[in-house]
Design a protein around this nucleic acid. Structure first.
Lengths: 123, 123
DNA sequence: ATTATTGTATTAAGTACTTAGTACAGTAAT
DNA sequence: ATTACTGTACTAAGTACTTAATACAATAAT
């Protein structure tokens, strides 16, 4: 399914993917997730790697597991509700940080983005 | 000096740091760089790790080395001239990609950035 | 000549991540 | 009862990255 970047541990990349699906509502609160083995097939990785990603997400309170039934997105955790805002904040924060490192004023960045999007449209 | 993220190989992070310094003119074309051992001290890593980063940068044509004199930023390579634009393009491209993954319209992103910057000012 | 510094090369060890393979207890469906 | 599915646990092996510890030839300064 997905091809992962080699510079970042796969289990972290799987965590990111699942977080996004929860954040945008593709995996609604309380819904059942695919099993460890199904996800391993989907992502073309070892089940242990998926298990590692899901354990971490569980530790963060985003998912829970009924040992023999399956695994579910957390029902009403504040973490889930605020997840999209958190992720968006992280993305913008890292972006601004990188922009500053290129000695570009953050206030100048919107025109640059617009230029990028225009160029992207033409292709 | 710097603390590196544990999720990405240090030699790649060092490459990024040096690229930025070249891009913003802190390391001008033709200028001599700090030695492998000095950089290892500065970054608090093993000289081998610095050597690895510099070898890669050399492979990309950004730096060159006179074996017993030292290492220098490439003089007039087109790569150096275009570096800042390339890095900026990468940063914006990755940002837009992540924004889309959060199911946010790229056209809606500038107001979000402005909101972020206003919030940042107050702290 | 001696000394210090340069980039580079090598070997050995340790750590983190990933995979492969196997196993077990509990649940659901038949 | 049997079968198939859950999450979980464990060991062994391979790979990539990092560190440590040397070593060498060539240059510059003394």
């Amino acid at each position: 399914m997905d091809i992962f970047e080699s510079t970042k541990p796969i289990y972290l990349q799987i965590m990111d993917l699942i977080k996004k699906e929860i954040a945008i509502g593709k995996l609604p609160p309380g819904s059942q997730m695919a099993s460890v083995r199904e996800l391993a097939m989907k992502y073309q990785v070892n089940p242990n790697t998926v298990q590692r990603a899901l354990s971490e997400l569980e530790r963060e309170g985003l998912v829970r597991s009924d040992r023999t039934i399956g695994r579910f997105v957390s029902e009403q955790s504040d973490t889930v509700v605020l997840l999209k805002d958190q992720l968006l904040d992280e993305v913008i924060g890292e972006f601004i940080k990188k922009i500053k490192e290129l000695s570009i004023e953050p206030d100048d960045v919107c025109p640059l983005i617009k230029k990028y999007l225009l160029r992207e449209e033409k292709e």
